[in-house]
């Protein structure tokens, strides 16, 4: 066992974990942050996407120990019903959400893109979203939602 410190959604945590624990499991089972989803467990689907120190990663491929000392944003740290993030608003308005299992990861990839570049090109949007699979929507509305959010974010 080892101690790690994480700053998750601006809240500090000190945790005693097994070095082999994945960040995904620590977030879900130790911190109860169930918004981060496991779709494949092998880096293919992006449902487990979180932002670590300003970068999106697949939390199913990261050990919690590797994130020691990092700042982490999960979907629970992005917007709420009173003040949704522009990406969240756009996803709802455009109809980019169907079953919703891919949605937290999608929102985080889109948010991270817009944090870095408020007016991305269509190509940049496609690339930024290319690590997130959706089996329901067919992507068109997802890309449109990100575009809309980038226009509204202004």
């Amino acid at each position: 066992m080892m101690d790690i410190k994480l700053m998750v959604n601006n809240k500090p945590y000190t945790l005693n974990i097994e070095p082999s624990e994945r960040l995904l499991d620590v977030l879900r089972t130790r911190l109860g942050l169930m918004g981060t989803k496991e779709g494949c467990g092998e880096g293919e689907c992006g449902a487990c996407t979180v932002i670590v120190d300003g970068k999106t990663v697949n939390s199913c491929l990261v050990l919690a120990a590797q994130a020691n000392g990092s700042e982490i944003t999960t979907i629970e740290g992005v917007g709420n019903r009173r003040k949704p993030h522009p990406v969240q608003k756009a996803f709802v308005e455009v109809g980019a959400v169907q079953c919703g299992f891919c949605t937290p990861g999608m929102v985080l990839s889109a948010k991270n893109l817009l944090d870095k570049k408020s007016k991305p090109s269509d190509d940049e949007i496609s690339v930024a979203m290319s690590g997130n699979l959706c089996r329901c929507t067919g992507y068109d509305k997802i890309l449109r939602a990100v575009k809309l959010a980038s226009q509204e974010g202004n």
Binding site: R28, L33, M34, G35, T36, K37, E38, T74, I75, E76, V78, G79, N80, R81, P84, V87, Q88, F91, V92, E93, G95, V97, G100, F101, T103, P104, V107
Partner: peptide
């Protein structure tokens, strides 16, 4: 007409409960 699906809000905030949750 364009209607907003109400369950989408719970999903964009990561609040919707899937059975694994």
């Amino acid at each position: 007409s364009r209607v907003i699906r109400e369950d989408a809000w719970g999903k964009v905030f990561g609040q919707s409960k899937f059975p694994a949750d």
